[in-house]
Design a binder for these strands. Structure first.
Lengths: 344, 344
DNA sequence: CTGAAAGCGCTTACAG
DNA sequence: CTGAAAGCGCTTACAG
């Protein structure tokens, strides 16, 4: 048996030997293309393909990439956990990539382990290009440097200036403020906030939600009651418990803004279970606009992208990837909106 | 300006030239290791590192991989959409990988575009190893072939025999049947099933849920009413609408098994909104055991892994990866369980 | 202590 | 129509 045989992947030399041709011919047959010249004749192709099948040859990605100066891989980087948005984008990228024979890898960056290894995937050219969802740990200078080295990049960010890479603007801060404005306009004065865990320590550019909450309250002369700001994990019993607790206070909030739709949904459950009518006794507005917000009753008022579609952004990445000369920088507008439904 | 300058990544030759050393020395300095010999002296190291910083050099992944015969990349393949389970596994893999200086890429395979390009990531050695969650589109023969070529593989599958790769057994079929058994034992005769879209066309090995549902009903002499089997998309208004419709029938189901916890949760919402008491008037059991099942009230009875932890599986992948000689095949038991809470 | 050289597995202009 | 050869950017045994 071959049990202890050292694993060696067959190479094009093995194919060439077996088919009685040169490695050049093997390569021509496998790639199907060949400069300007005609492809090898049918007979030769068959001999090569037979050898490939018999040996079970698979091309070596590293060698091909080194030689061709491209990896045929694109990445999607996003802060973990995944969401319907990152899932959808991955799916759309994959469809577009498949048409071109490229593969897509997802690069979830965990809050807990902001792995340097993950950034190396971009820096060391594991991929030819990438789409970066908001709040990935890369600064403008670094992105420019990557772009200058030929990496194709489409970056979701509301502040960065494009510089060799494209930027997608969502105006998240504006629409988060609109949500708080709405609650204030509805007459609410005690407005709670379900924060991302650790959000209060984030850089300002990242904590647009908390920042907008504070700012709008301030503008209306409403002080921020720190007791009404609760960090809760995404989609966990935390939010439910926090809302139970908030509603049990002597001076409970009458409205809640939540950094995530999932926590907002948990909040609605909690309110319903406690017999607090939503939105009459507790108005709830989420952030993110995930599809589940449509299912709960009352339907979730939220802030987010109006449609679950990234065709433009995906098209832009591939346009950059395929363009012979560097494309001019683009700014794509994909603004978030306040989506008023029933809960607030 | 360098706007039209063709992007060229600097190489170790550029560093060598600038630092006045050979490329061998650059490589030694950068890698920090050097066969048995001592590393270059401090002064040389500094010169090299200075040149690296000034030029903004980043190593080329393809070239390094080709030479070292390893990519320092591991993959996590799973059927899209992502779930708390795939997220958690990605996070645990990433933590373990980061300790070793490796990166993790996620490989979500979409039902709609079962991309050949994605399989190439495994076949063509983009990665050194991978963990495959259940229902990835790779057969036993193919997995064995990949393993024989030296790919390290840990595969979640209830049927496959390990063969150069390790297998994690969850016994999903058994525990799905246990869920139906429970409903029958509770006296239910009209038991509906919220299926994965397209599940009835899946291969038997993949449709363990539907199959278990049918089989147990058959064993108890309960005919399967096709009207009670509804395909619904994961986490979408579908499930909510389907349950509304089912409960409006003249002969509504008194119990529901759902292929996903999310749809089960939607079902509970729908029942509550219609004033049907859960579990008294409609018992609901989900499959998957996602954390959200704990939040809804009544808490979701479900089937799934009892704890959100993949340390053993992750450790096993890295053991394979790091072992000089091929490890003997392992079968890890990580059985799903019926987790009885309140909803059914 | 350092560098010249070979070679990883491909691709591709080029010569025959 | 086909093959010999150079070279992509690294690493590493080896010679000096």
């Amino acid at each position: 048996m071959a049990a202890t045989e050292p694993p060696r992947r067959p190479t094009q030399r093995d194919i060439a030997r077996r088919a009685g041709v040169s490695t050049a011919t093997v390569s021509y047959v496998l790639s199907g293309r060949r400069g300007g010249a005609k492809p090898p004749p049918q007979e030769t192709r068959e001999r090569v393909m037979r050898a490939v099948a018999e040996i079970g040859y698979q091309i070596d990605h590293s060698a091909r990439s080194l030689r061709r100066r491209r990896t045929d891989l694109v990445g999607l980087m996003y802060p973990a956990p995944s969401s319907p948005w990152s899932d959808r984008l991955a799916e759309q990228m994959q469809a577009a990539a498949a048409e071109r024979g490229l593969a897509v890898v997802a690069l979830p960056v965990s809050e807990s382990t902001p792995s340097d290894a993950l950034l190396r995937v971009l820096r060391e050219r594991y991929v030819d290009g990438a789409i970066l969802l908001p709040d990935c740990p890369l600064g403008g200078a670094e992105l420019s440097a990557l772009a200058r080295q030929g990496l194709s990049l489409v970056v979701f960010d509301d502040e960065l200036r494009p510089d060799g890479f494209d930027v997608v603007r969502q105006d998240r801060a504006r629409s988060c403020r609109a949500a708080v404005e709405r609650l204030v306009a509805l007459g609410h004065r005690r407005i709670g906030y379900l924060a991302h865990p650790g959000e209060s320590e984030w850089a300002p550019a990242r904590s647009v939600k908390l920042h907008g909450y504070r700012r709008v309250l301030g503008e209306h002369g409403i002080g921020v009651d720190p007791d009404l700001v609760r960090p809760v994990a995404d989609s966990r019993p935390d939010a439910y418990a926090a809302v139970r607790e908030l509603l049990g206070r002597p001076d409970p909030p009458t409205a809640l803004l939540s950094a995530t739709d999932r926590a907002a949904i948990d909040a609605i459950w909690a309110a319903r279970d406690l017999g607090a009518a939503v939105p009459e006794e507790l108005a709830v507005i989420g952030i993110g606009n995930i599809p589940e917000g449509l299912v709960i009753s009352p339907a979730l008022t939220t802030v987010g992208a109006p449609v679950l579609d990234f065709s433009r952004e995906v098209a832009r990445l591939f346009a950059r990837l395929e363009s012979a000369s560097p494309l001019p920088d683009a700014v794509l507008a994909a603004p978030w909106e306040l989506i008023v439904r029933e809960s607030g």
